[in-house]
Amino acid sequence: MNRIITVVYIFLIILVVSVLGFRGSKSRKEPLYLFPDMDRQARYEPQGENPFFEDKMDDRLPPQNTIARGNALDRAGVFSSGFDATELTDVAFNTGRDEAGEFLKELPIEVNHELMELGRERYDIFCAVCHDETGDGNGAVKNFAPPTLSSANLLTQLYIDQSEGEIYNTISYGKNTMMGYADKLSPKERWAVVLYVRALQRAANATADDIPEAKRGELGL
C-alpha cells in the first residue's frame, strides 16, 4: 500500500514537471496572468495601440493649425522676463539659417566643454556608424554597404569649408543617402555634434603648435 502511494506521488510530480516544464525555459506562448487584477488598465501607453483612432496609435500629433500651449512664437506674454527662450523661439538656432536665409557661419550657442562632451557622445552613437569615430567615413557600415557607395569623409576640405549652418542642416534633413536625424537629436544636440565635427576636423589636421607647450613632452615632441 505504502509503496503504491509513493509511486503514484512521484509519478504525479514527474507528470506536473514534464507538462509545465522549468522556470525560464523559452516559450512562444504568451505569459500567463494568474492574478490579472488591474494588470492591464484602460489607459494610453507610450507608443501604444488604440483602435479608436484611424492610425491606431495612442501617440497623437497636434491637430493641424494648432499650437501646443507654450509653443506660440510670441512668448513675451507667456514666460517671465528671466526665462531663456532661445531654444524655443530663436529661428536661427532651430533652422541653422539667419534672417536672410543664409546658413550660419558660426555656432549660435555658447561653446564649452560640456557641449563638446555632449557632441562627442551623440556623434559616437548616431554618426560614427557611417562616418567613423575619427570622421574619415570608414565606419562599420562600410563593411555592409554596396562598394559603389561611401560615407562622407568629414575631414576633407569640402566639409572643413562648409558653414556650421549647412552641417546643421545636413544633420537635420540628411543629404544624398543620409537621412535626417531631427527626430533623434534636439537642436542643441545637433549644434553639439557640429562642434564635435569641427573638433575632429581640427584634430585630423593638427600640428605640434596646436598642443599646449606643457603637454608636448607627453607626445615626445
Binding site: 509545465l20 522556470r23 525555459s25 523559452k26 516559450s27 512562444r28 500567463l32
Partner: peptide
C-alpha cells in the same frame, strides 16, 4: 508538494521568464 508547486510555478519567474514571441 502543492506549496512547492505554487512557489515554483505561480510567480513571474515561471510565467514570464523565457517568453520569446515570434
Amino acid at each position: 508538494a502543492i506549496i512547492a508547486g505554487l512557489y515554483y510555478y505561480f510567480t513571474p519567474s515561471y510565467t514570464r521568464a523565457g517568453y520569446q514571441p515570434v
